[in-house]
Simulated assay, not measured.
Amino acid sequence: MTKNTIILTMGDPAGVGPEVLLKSYKKAKETQNLVAISDFSKIQYLAKRHDVPLKKINYVDEASDFKDHLNILHLTYNSDFSPSNYDIKNSDSIIASIQIATELCLNKKVGAMVTGPINKSILRNNKAFKHFTGHTDYIEHLCGCKKGIATMMMSNPYLKIIPLTIHEPLNKVPLKIKKAIIEKKILLIISEVKKYFQNIPKIAVLGLNPHAGEDGQIGYEEKSDILPAILNFRSNEDCVVNGPFPADGFFGSKDYRNYDITLAMYHDQALIPLKLLAFSETINVTLGLPIIRTSPGHGTGINIAKHFQADCNSFYKAILFAGKMMTKIKN
């Protein structure tokens, strides 16, 4: 049944996406029903290299015998797949693969999607993608969601963390640290965590400034916006929200172990400790969407793609996590 299927996209075929997808299929095929969107003829040489049998399908309903071969939902790409060599001619198909996967999820033809890494700067040269910063806001748009609702949760076995701001220059981050925005994000976290993980989440909120502002001596955002937002949840029985914590002490003392989710203020505050803890096991889960979408926690790996030695663990973990989320929805 295709509704129990996870649809996979390669991302940019010049990167490690096709390789880690094929390797992950071999590891996950016994427990997950997987279909990949790709150009059947162009991915065959990679599939042979990794000893993955393929079956070409034109509609996802044709997928079958998931353990015996990887079903390839055919999508024509303009250029051959050349590892470590970006080709802008493939941008239309890369974008189309995201569109197809999202549509299949929205129409409940499949249960979840796992997306391979893309080169955002190349895709932004395409008129269909020029107004988007990456997968998260593009899929948000495809789902018809309100702008800003899609939330990137980065996860590994040791830490689940959400950056309040994602691809913002550091000099613009303080402008986004507003009480209403923080409250809205915490409400979304409560809703999504209860939906997929546990009933009463314990949430830690980090400060923006060194020493969490030191009572206004090193910045005002903690006093003016972060703490007031946290205090609004003190009487909420659906969650526990504490902070703002100085980031260095929070991670240095391993206090993150006492919380289900950590809300960081900006990209690197979240992702540096996360990837230091377990780089190859880190994945991205997009919360706030009407569909399930996960992805590996790494980029295209363009410099190593030609060596065919990429670690597939993150992509594999993203598949397994999507499968667990599907099970939660069914239950």
Rank of each mutant, 00 (worst) to 15 (best):
residue 159 L to K: 14
residue 134 G to M: 05
residue 223 K to S: 01
residue 191 S to Q: 12
residue 226 I to C: 03
residue 188 L to H: 08
residue 140 E to C: 04
residue 134 G to C: 00
residue 125 N to W: 13
residue 209 N to E: 05
residue 146 K to E: 10
residue 187 L to V: 01
residue 182 I to N: 01
residue 193 V to C: 15
residue 175 L to Y: 04
residue 175 L to A: 06
residue 221 E to F: 04
residue 117 P to M: 06
residue 205 V to K: 03
residue 189 I to G: 15
residue 146 K to F: 06
residue 133 T to L: 14
residue 138 Y to S: 05
residue 219 G to S: 09
residue 218 I to N: 02
residue 124 R to S: 05
residue 221 E to A: 09
residue 132 F to H: 11
residue 147 K to Y: 12
residue 213 G to P: 14
residue 189 I to L: 14
residue 186 I to M: 08
residue 149 I to M: 12
residue 222 E to W: 05
residue 150 A to N: 08
residue 201 P to V: 10
residue 223 K to D: 04
residue 208 L to A: 05
residue 146 K to W: 13
residue 211 H to Y: 10
residue 123 L to V: 00
residue 154 M to P: 07
residue 123 L to N: 08
residue 229 A to H: 05
residue 227 L to Q: 14
residue 212 A to I: 07
residue 218 I to Q: 03
residue 225 D to A: 07
residue 145 C to T: 13
residue 177 I to L: 08
residue 185 K to T: 09
residue 165 T to I: 12
residue 196 Y to I: 13
residue 174 P to I: 15
residue 209 N to L: 09
residue 205 V to D: 09
residue 138 Y to T: 05
residue 181 I to M: 07
residue 228 P to F: 11
residue 115 T to C: 13
residue 208 L to Q: 01
residue 137 D to K: 00
residue 210 P to R: 01
residue 205 V to E: 07
residue 229 A to Q: 05
residue 120 K to H: 06
residue 209 N to Q: 09
residue 140 E to L: 01
residue 175 L to F: 06
residue 200 I to A: 03
residue 222 E to G: 08
residue 145 C to E: 15
residue 227 L to P: 08
residue 181 I to L: 14
residue 222 E to V: 07
residue 207 G to Q: 02
residue 151 T to K: 12
residue 166 I to N: 06
residue 157 P to Q: 10
residue 205 V to F: 04
residue 173 V to Q: 00
residue 163 P to Q: 08
residue 139 I to H: 13
residue 133 T to W: 05
residue 181 I to Y: 06
residue 167 H to W: 03
residue 227 L to C: 03
residue 131 H to P: 00
